[in-house]
Design a protein around this nucleic acid. Structure first.
Lengths: 374, 374
DNA sequence: GTGAAAGCGCTAACAT
DNA sequence: ATGTTAGCGCTTTCAC
C-alpha cells in the first residue's frame, strides 16, 4: 500500500480510504480514480492479515466437523459457505476425529480461536454437552460465539448454546405413523448411537408414535447401530429371525437403511414385500434406492447456523435458542405404500399413501411428500 | 503476550522464545516453566494473525471448489484436510459457482490470495486451461503455488501447472474392455461434458478399448450428459429405442449410472439382463446399487494435491507435473459378470469375472477388484 | 541467557 | 480533504 501512496503522491490514509471504498469520508473523484489507477497498475492486493490485526475483525467463521462422512455433512458445510459468501465471510474448516475424544475437539477449537475466527460452528459432535463445554468456555473467554449443528443439548444445560437441528422427534413420529397407517404392528427400529441426540430424538419419536397408537414399545425390536450402518448385518439377521419378526423397519438414517437394503437383498428378503423400510435423511442415494424417508434439509441447517452466528455478532448477548428445521415424509418404494394402496380402479397417477391423497408421476422415483407438521 | 511478560517479569523476547518452544536459544528450565505457568494461568492464546503478519507465513492452504456436489468432492477435501492437519496447516475453503464463469473463479482466487494462503488447490473446475490461467498468473505474481485436482491440462500449455487426476484413460479402457470380454459388442457411452478433462479422457479410454478390439467407434452410441446425470432420461430412451440398441452402457460416473439405473427400472428394463452397466467412481452409492464401476480414490487425490503443494513450498521452482492415481475395476452386479460366469460347477465363492479369476463372498456387494494397471 | 528496539501492512484518531 | 501519528500482537536481529 505504501507503494501505491508513494507512486500516486497521496498519503497512506487517503489511499486506505479509497481502497476500502469508504463513503463516510469525502474524497474528490479525481483523487479517487488516480489512486485506483495506480493500485491496479501496481497489481496491489490488500493484505487481509494486516487488516485483521488492526481492525480486530477477520471476517472468518470457524467450522469443526468430524470429517465429511456423508452428503449430509457436506451439505451442511455447503449451507454455511453459502451464508458466509453472501456476507463476504471466509470459512476455516477443520476436522476432529471422533475417536480421539474430547481432546481433539478442544484442540481444533483452540486452533480456530488462535486464528481469531469471529464465530464457531461445530457439526455432529455427538460427544455430549460436557464435551462441548470444554471448548465453549474457551470460546466464551475469547468472546467468540458458537452454534452447534445436528446436536442438541437444550437451552439450560449450564450456560446454553445455540443449536440447529432437524425436528427429529416430530419427523420420526411421522415416519413411524406412516408405517402404522399402512397396517404394520411389529415395527423394528434400527436406532443410532445413544450418545447422538438426533438418534435419541428419533427413538423418542418412534416411541411416541407407538404410544399414540396405543401400543407398547417392545425393546427387543430395537437394535442400536452406528450412523454409518457398518457391521449392521448380524443384529439384523437376529432381528429378522425372531419367532415373530417385524414386518417393517424404521432406520435411524439413510446409510443404515442402505446397509439394510443390501443385507436384506443378500438374504433373499424383498423390500417392501417381506419387510417394509422407512428411514431418515433423504440423501441422494435414498432416491436411487427408492427409500421412503424423512426429507431433511442439511443445507438449510448450515445456512441457519451461520445466520444465527451473524445475528449474534450483530447483537451479542441473546439467550440461547434451539432451532428445529422441519422434515417431510417422502414416500417412495421401500415402505410398500404404492403396492398396498393401488386398488383395481386406481391408476398410477391417483393413489393414496398413508391415508393421504397423493399424486405421482412414477411408482418409484417421484415421491409423495408429506410435511412432518401435518 | 505482553501480559505474560509483565506478569512473569521477563521480556517479551524471552516469553516469545519459550511460548514457541524454540530450541535454538537456550533458556534455563526455571525461566521456561515459570513463563509457561503464567501463560496458562492467564489463559494466554497466541494470535496467529499477528504471528502471520511478521513471519509472513500463514500455515494456511486455500481450496476452491464448485460446491461439495457429491461424495467425490467431499472426499477430496477430506484428503486435503488430512494432509494439512498432519503438517499443522489450516484449510480455507471457498466455493465458486461454475455458472458464473471465469470471473467467479478469479474472484475466489483473489480472496484466498488476500488472505495470504501459502498454496492454492482448485477442484473440478472444468472451465479449461484458459480460465485457470487468469488466476494462476495472479497467484504466480504473489509467489503462491497452485495445484489442480480432477482436471488436467498437460504440462506445457503456457506455463505448466501441477495436476492431480485419476488415470482416466486407462481406467475407462479397463471398464470397456471388461464389457467387451463379457461379449458385448454394442456398448453405449454416457459421456460427461466435453469441457471436463476427466470426461474427455474417459471417452478416450472408451475409444481406445474399442479400437484395440478392432471395432469402430459408433458416434450414435455416445450421449453427452452432465456429471450430475440430471435430465438424462430423454437421451437414454432415444438410445435404447434404436433399432439395434446397445447391450451395455458405460457411464461417465456413478451419478450418471445411478440416474440410468432409475430410468431403466422405470421403463421396465432390467440390469444387467436387458442392458449391462459399468460406471466410474465407486461412490458409496455404487455399492448399494450393485454397480460395477472403476474405483477411484478421491481422498488420495486430495492428499496428493496437498503433498505436492507442500513439496513445492519446500523446494520451489520444480517443473509442473501430472500425477495420475490409478483406478481399479470393481465388479458387482450391474455388468452381468456374475450371471454369465457362474457355471453349474461353480459355487458362489469361485467364479471368474472378465476372464480373470476372482473370489467373492457375496454375489452382490462383495466385489471382485482388478487393478487398472493389469 | 536476556532485553531493547525495529517493523510486518494496515487502520483510525487526531491534526491540519 | 488530506496528512501525521500511533499502534494492532507478534518475531527477530543485535546488543548487553
Amino acid at each position: 500500500m505504501v507503494d501505491v501512496a508513494r507512486e500516486s503522491g497521496f498519503s497512506r490514509t487517503t489511499v486506505s480510504y479509497v481502497l476500502n471504498g469508504r463513503t463516510d469520508v469525502s474524497i474528490p473523484q479525481p483523487t479517487r480514480s488516480e489512486i485506483l489507477r495506480v493500485a491496479a497498475a501496481l497489481g496491489y492486493r490488500p493484505n487481509s492479515i494486516a487488516r485483521s490485526l488492526v481492525s480486530r475483525r477477520t471476517r472468518t467463521l470457524g467450522v469443526m466437523v468430524p470429517s465429511l462422512e456423508s452428503a449430509f455433512e457436506a451439505e451442511i458445510v455447503n449451507g454455511i459457505q453459502e451464508a458466509c459468501a453472501r456476507r463476504d465471510y471466509r470459512m476455516l474448516l477443520t476436522y476432529y476425529r471422533k475417536s480421539e475424544g474430547v481432546g481433539d475437539e478442544l484442540g481444533q477449537a483452540r486452533l480456530l480461536l488462535e486464528n481469531r475466527v469471529e464465530g464457531l460452528i461445530s457439526l455432529s459432535s455427538h460427544l455430549g454437552p460436557a464435551a462441548a463445554r470444554v471448548w465453549l468456555d474457551d470460546a466464551a473467554a475469547d468472546g467468540v460465539e458458537c452454534v452447534l449443528v445436528d446436536q442438541c443439548y437444550g437451552t439450560d444445560a449450564g450456560r446454553g448454546v445455540d443449536c440447529v437441528v432437524s425436528d427429529d422427534v416430530a419427523g420420526a413420529r411421522v415416519a413411524v405413523r406412516h408405517l402404522l397407517e399402512l397396517g404394520h404392528r411389529r415395527i423394528g427400529h434400527l436406532a443410532g448411537p445413544v450418545d447422538a441426540t438426533p438418534a435419541r430424538e428419533r427413538r423418542a419419536g418412534y416411541d411416541k408414535a407407538l404410544s399414540e397408537a396405543g401400543m407398547q414399545v417392545d425393546p427387543s425390536l430395537i437394535v442400536i447401530t452406528t450412523f454409518s450402518g457398518a457391521g449392521l448385518g448380524g443384529a439384523l439377521t437376529h432381528l429378522l429371525n425372531r419367532e415373530e419378526p417385524p414386518t417393517a423397519l424404521f432406520a435411524a438414517n439413510d446409510q443404515v437403511a442402505a446397509e439394510t437394503h443390501l443385507a436384506l437383498r443378500e438374504s433373499g428378503l424383498r423390500i417392501p414385500e417381506d419387510v417394509a423400510l422407512v428411514s431418515y435423511g433423504d440423501l441422494p442415494l435414498a432416491r436411487f434406492l427408492g427409500l421412503t424417508t424423512m426429507h431433511q434439509d442439511p443445507r438449510e441447517l448450515g445456512r441457519r447456523a451461520a445466520a444465527r452466528l451473524f445475528d449474534r455478532l450483530e447483537e451479542p448477548g441473546q439467550p440461547a435458542s434451539v432451532i428445529r428445521v422441519p422434515t417431510q415424509l417422502v414416500v417412495r418404494h421401500s415402505c410398500g405404500a404404492h403396492r398396498r394402496n393401488i386398488g383395481p380402479s386406481q391408476t398410477l397417477k391417483e393413489r393414496t399413501c398413508g391415508g393421504v391423497a397423493m399424486t405421482a408421476d412414477s411408482a418409484y422415483a417421484q415421491p409423495c411428500i408429506l410435511n412432518s407438521a401435518f
